[in-house]
Simulated assay, not measured.
Amino acid sequence: MVRVMVIFGGRSGEHEVSLASARGVIEALEKSGRYEVLPVGITREGRWRVGENALSELEAAARRAIPQAQEPRAPATRDEKLPNGFGDVDVVFPVLHGPYGEDGTVQGLLELAGVPYVGSGVLGSAVSMDKITMKKIFAFHGLPQVNWVGLTREEWECDPEGWIGRIEALLGYPCFVKPSNLGSSVGISKARDAGELRAGLEEAAELDRRIIVEQGLDAREIEVSVLGNEWPEVSLPGEIVVRNRDFYDYRAKYTEGESEIVVPARIPDETTRAIREIARTAFRAVDAAGMARVDFFLERETGRVLLNEINTIPGFTPTSGYARFWAASGLSYEQLLDRLIRHALERHG
């Protein structure tokens, strides 16, 4: 029986999303009867919890909404220690979204430990987490993107008026301001004028030292799932339809009734082919492995396909986009997990 360590939680703002992903993965692996699962949770303050109660403990803390940092530090217990490091497991399945999990940090730890793990390596994870670096690599490969501007917190603080003028000249309004290294639409704002642009840049600068601003378009949001290593497969596309919101922000993603995933997306066959080919190229360009969700804009007026970003550890519940796109393509959630674990073992070997 294959022993799988599932790591979840973490210090990022996507802690709760990670717990939901972990619940889906753990239950499906245990149900299959082919895997022995070792749950490993990381609290918001970075403390590790090991054992069958790790997930329920972190879920209870999330429901209480009490910051972990305010709890008294308990003495180290056996449950806080990984048995013989990672030596007792065959493969690790990280479902850590955002910083300190999707950005190459945990992947580096697993490389040092010499243990196989699901998903991209250090390079692919780090590049894909930083939107500015990711977009530069996409540009090198000639992939179509929206116009964008990158800057640092220090550059913004030293010359706010100058940057507002540059962004207005290069991108115009509306535009979208994003922290470069956060996921799940955390800290993203839409700017329709200079006042909103200033507020958005201030907010993004509080969350990250690198900031990206993208040109706003009248476009549909299309996503595909990618699976594999050297020869990746791409799923049928799905469309994100947002209700009662101006764009696909954190609330739209995780509040019931605020958005809907339509899969397969109702788009022409030639558009589907273009999206799948661009996704495959983007996956290889950043040296991704195992899995990724690739997001696109489909401009309404022209039908132009524009690459938005790649996510190397997307939401992973059975109803998340990544799994739903594969289900529509003929691959069940359980089969998807089997394939990902096999790809991890093949890559390590």
Rank of each mutant, 00 (worst) to 15 (best):
R243E: 04
N244Y: 13
N244L: 12
N244G: 15
R245A: 15
F247T: 02
Y248A: 02
Y248C: 01
D249L: 01
Y250R: 06
Y250V: 12
Y250C: 05
Y250L: 10
A252N: 08
A252P: 06
K253S: 07
Y254H: 15
Y254P: 07
S259E: 05
S259F: 06
S259Q: 02
I261H: 12
I261C: 13
V262F: 11
V262D: 06
V263C: 15
P264R: 03
P264S: 05
A265D: 00
I267G: 04
D269A: 15
T271E: 04
T272L: 02
R273Y: 00
R273G: 05
A274M: 13
R276V: 08
R276T: 07
E277M: 10
I278Q: 02
I278F: 04
A279D: 03
R280F: 05
T281G: 12
T281Y: 01
A282D: 10
A282T: 09
A282Q: 08
A282K: 07
F283H: 02
R284S: 12
R284D: 00
A285Y: 02
V286N: 10
D287N: 14
D287K: 14
A288K: 12
A289S: 14
A289N: 14
A289C: 09
G290D: 01
G290K: 09
M291F: 01
M291V: 01
A292P: 07
A292D: 03
A292W: 01
V294M: 04
F296M: 09
F297R: 03
E299C: 05
E299M: 03
E299R: 07
E299K: 02
E299T: 02
R300G: 02
R300Y: 05
E301G: 14
E301M: 10
T302V: 02
T302I: 03
G303N: 07
G303S: 03
G303K: 05
V305S: 07
V305L: 08
V305R: 00
L306I: 11
L307I: 13
L307Q: 10
N308W: 10
N308E: 09
E309N: 11
N311G: 07
N311F: 11
T312R: 07
P314Q: 05
P314R: 01
P314Y: 09
G315A: 08
G315Q: 06
F316I: 00
T317K: 00
T319R: 13
T319G: 02
S320G: 04
S320N: 08
S320T: 03
G321H: 12
Y322D: 03
Y322A: 01
A323S: 11
F325Q: 13
W326S: 08
W326A: 09
A327V: 08
